[in-house]
Design a protein around this nucleic acid. Structure first.
Lengths: 268, 268
DNA sequence: CAGTGGTCTAGACCACACT
DNA sequence: GTGTGGTCTAGACCACTGC
């Protein structure tokens, strides 16, 4: 079989004739490898919700048949998606859509660890929703969420405590439209991580995030909520979280107490 | 050719007989894929200095011949090493040993960025070596460097300034033996990143690092060196840097001014 | 042009999980 | 046993680099 470059074909799509020798479908420039195209197709299925979080996607052989490429090509596409934490491979079982729920690490994006002892030694965090209201987006929030200033957004404030000690104060903003119907009640009712709730209730999967970290002093509100003195330095963590296609879906400003905990980062 | 599991063979090593059908050299448990064994062999050559930083390693075909495996297996081994930033692939040219020098990013492990403008907008950092002396390792330093308390270590203090503003104060400790001969002079003479000097002068390549980040207040020395008030919160960044095989080779305690800059992290 | 890494295929077999 | 992902091979061709 010749392997001149061809476009991957969805089921039932017309094929380019196999026998012909040098039909160049994609020439440089703008050459994209087959496996990248397959990756994009899989990504589409993930976005469209064809495969739900924690469900298994079709086997490599099935996908190879569907896209009319070899298993190795599908494999390379899945490899990259697994490296980006969008898929999880489990030998002997299948490939699954990654999820923020039911993962071993309770908070996938939280980089705060206790000074000593492992992560679970202090048990699960206590969560308290302070506030949850609909507001019109100020300019800076709007910019971060890629909406227009004045558009409705949800503003949430909460405190996370470890072994009873308030440690994290978070303000977060969500675009109003995708999160229509989110209330303090529903936040309080949910057990798992907030991002798990976003997945199951609003179909919004956070895929990637960027954080800007600074050392700051708290304002008076923050002092009382975290029970610290005004002179106590806090770690300011401003996170923008993205869904598929780098669409921003959350802005989060956290104040971390770093006496008993530290923010861990690994450099490669 | 059968592909029953075999050990990779260095040039001249005796082979396991190819024809025999079911000689199981490595059974589960402790099964290690061939490409992992190849990866370990390549790693050895990197450690031993067989291939110097920025030099090209042998081509995939050559390595495949040397290790008596297929090109695909070598490829997978190199893929992983490239993903870990130990090797750099350049299409059409070859595969090269990664280096801290001559990289596009001046400081590969520095995560501090100006609030606005890109990285180069403020030009290169100004470096000032405050101090460099030989001391006997206190307990905490010794533990981090995996040496005995009291063993000789080098202690360096320096300030980095951007557009003339002192922004980073760093104290760092290096094990005495591998860095014998390092002086303030030699640090001042060098142009590029410190890690580039370590590579070229001491044959120590930093491969990976872990950072613990906190918000703290400066002591009086730090105040004067960074020209800040005692109440100014600073970002404390404690880094342990590792060479090959996760051997710690540096402990670095940095105080970052985060008024005009921020520490950036990306979560996947 | 030759040499390098990069893509793609097809087929074989191994390790693992379920039933 | 069957089906899944994981490894390994061999060979072909493509894209990029530099002589």
């Amino acid at each position: 079989m010749n392997n001149a470059p061809t476009s991957p074909a969805e089921l039932g799509d017309p094929l380019f004739s196999e026998g012909s020798s040098t039909i160049s479908v994609q020439q440089s420039p703008a050459f994209s490898p087959l496996y990248q195209q397959i990756k994009a197709l899989i990504l589409q299925s993930l976005q469209s919700g064809e495969w739900k979080p924690s469900a298994a996607i079709p086997s490599e052989m099935e996908l190879a048949a569907r896209f009319k490429v070899s298993q190795g090509t599908v494999r390379k596409a899945i490899d990259e998606l697994a490296a980006e934490n969008l898929l999880v491979r489990r030998q002997g079982k299948g490939t699954f859509v990654a999820t923020h729920a039911e993962q071993h690490v309770q908070y996938r994006f939280l980089r705060l660890f206790p000074n000593s002892g492992n992560l679970d030694s202090e048990g699960p965090a206590q969560r308290e929703i302070i506030d949850c209201k609909r507001i019109r987006a100020p300019a800076d929030i709007a910019k971060a969420l890629a909406v227009r200033a004045g558009d409705p957004v949800l503003q949430v404030r909460r405190v996370l405590s470890f072994v009873g000690i308030p440690t994290i104060l978070e303000d977060l903003w969500l675009p109003g439209t995708p999160f229509k119907g989110l209330t303090a009640e529903r936040l309080r009712e949910s057990n798992g991580p907030m991002y798990a709730l976003f997945e199951s209730e609003f179909g919004v999967r956070m895929v990637r995030a960027e954080e800007k970290i600074r050392a700051v002093l708290p304002d008076t509100d923050q002092c009382s909520l975290l029970k610290v003195k005004p002179a106590a330095p806090l770690l300011s963590v401003e996170r923008t979280a993205f869904t598929y296609n780098d669409v921003p879906m959350e802005l989060r400003r956290g104040m971390y107490l770093t006496d008993t905990h530290y923010y861990r980062n690994t450099l490669n």
